[in-house]
Every structure is written in C-alpha cells, then in structure tokens.
C-alpha cells in the first residue's frame, strides 16, 4: 500500500505517483481538490480522504475509488468499469457517458447526472444517488440504471428536464415524480420484477453507507423508461 500526503501537491505530481506506483492500493490524505485522480486507472484500490477535484475516475477501467468527503464535477466521466463510492455528495455531470461500472453517492448529486449513460454487452452501468439529483438527470440516457433514493426528505428527489432525449436504460426514483416529464418517457410504479433488477445495487448502497434496506424499500419506486430506442426516426426526409 502507498500512502500519499497530497497537501500542497499539484495534480500532475499526484497523478504521476499513482500512475507509476507498482502498489495496488493507495491512500491519498489531505486531498485538496486535485483533479483527474484515478484517471483511466484499472485494478487499483484508491482511497481519497479530503476533497478530490473534477474528473475523478474519468475513463476508469476497473478497480475501486472510495472518497471520504464530497466529490466535485465530472466524476466517472466516460467510465468503462470499476466502482466509485462517495461518502458525501457529488457535483455536476457525474457519470457523463459512463459505459460500465458502478457509482454510489451517499448523499446528493448536482446537475446533469448520468447524461448519456450507456450499456454495452455484459457491462451493467449503474449510478446510485442516495439523496436528490439536480436538473437534466439522465438526459440522452442510452443504457444502464440510474437509481435516485431521495433519502433527503419527502420532496421529489429529481428536478427539471429529467430524461430528455432518453432512448435506453431505466431510471428508478423513490418517492414522488415531478409534475411533468418529457413526452417520450413512460413513467410507472415499479413492480417486484422491475425492482429485482436493481435490488443488488440497493443492497450494495446500504452495505457501503450503513443504511437500512427495509427503510429504503418501505416507499414505492417509480420506473422511467423510453418509448423508443430510435427517438429521431421520423425527423428527417432525404433530400
């Protein structure tokens, strides 16, 4: 295991230590907003104590990143595999174009979470947000599961323009839905079969953050799905 004191360190130096080390386990203490931690890493177990900067775990290819603190923007951007666990909240654009792997956020996420998330072959792409999510959640969603647990209260945990342009994947929302959703989105209360698909990820969320599963499942979930995987089919005429 390698232990790094990141106080006062620039991001290039910090990340070059992570890139070059032969150790499979790294602990970063006193993290002060250094960007790109774990960028394109595979097979490493990185623990971040403090506040990592933008693009944490971008292009992540495998392994695990655990953050004890809040994360900032673009967590798991274009992530391909592995796991990111955030004991706190995350900023904007978490899981943008995420193609594989799982992200767990204990508390809330900012705007544009899970935009254009995808799914490919055996990869199951998962983004679990414990609290609420900002506007534009799951825009252009093409695959995978976004699960918003709304543990912050009884208000609707998702915001405006959720799932605009969605053409694949599923969004699970615990509790009430916003008054309006885009036309191409079908929203219905999730049945037992729907829930069984996401059960393992809710289990993991509870395990990682010491939450009570029965308490979470005591409220009904809604499931959002697209009505077409070819949303723009009728838009064009060949000239």
């Amino acid at each position: 295991m390698i232990s790094i004191n990141a106080a006062g360190m620039d991001f290039i130096s910090l990340n070059s230590i992570l890139r070059e080390t032969k150790e499979k386990k790294a602990v970063i203490n006193n993290c002060e907003g250094q960007r790109y931690i774990g960028c394109a890493a595979s097979g490493m177990d990185i623990t971040v104590n403090g506040t990592p900067g933008n693009a944490l775990g971008s292009y992540l290819n495998g392994g695990r990143i655990t953050v004890h603190g809040n994360a900032q923007d673009a967590v798991g951007d274009t992530m391909n595999g592995g796991e990111i666990i955030i004991h706190g909240s995350a900023g904007d654009g978490i899981g943008l174009s995420q193609r594989g792997g799982e992200i767990y956020v204990r508390d809330s996420a900012g705007y544009r979470a899970g935009v254009h998330m995808k799914q490919y072959r055996d990869k199951t792409t998962v983004l679990v947000i414990g609290g609420s999510a900002g506007s534009f959640l799951g825009e252009y969603l093409a695959g995978g599961y976004i699960i918003v647990l709304g543990l912050t209260g009884d208000h609707c945990p998702i915001s405006n323009f959720c799932a605009a342009g969605m053409h694949g994947g599923k969004i699970f929302v615990r509790g009430v839905l916003p008054p309006s959703l885009p036309r191409q989105v079908i929203a219905a209360e999730a049945n037992a079969e729907d829930m069984s698909a996401v059960q393992p990820y809710i289990d993991k969320y509870c395990r990682y953050f010491g939450k009570d599963k029965d308490d979470i499942l005591s409220k009904p979930f809604h499931m959002l799905t697209p009505d077409s995987k070819n949303p723009y089919k009728m838009l064009y005429v060949f000239n």
């Binding site: 654009g93 544009r112 252009y140 723009y232």
Partner: peptide, 13 residues
C-alpha cells in the same frame, strides 16, 4: 445493436 447512436450537440461537460 439497433440503438440510435446520438452525438449530442454540445459536450455535456
């Protein structure tokens, strides 16, 4: 297979 490949107008990040 069969799913539209949509490149959004902006990069959302």
């Amino acid at each position: 297979e069969g799913s539209d490949a949509i490149s959004p107008a902006p990069h959302h990040d």
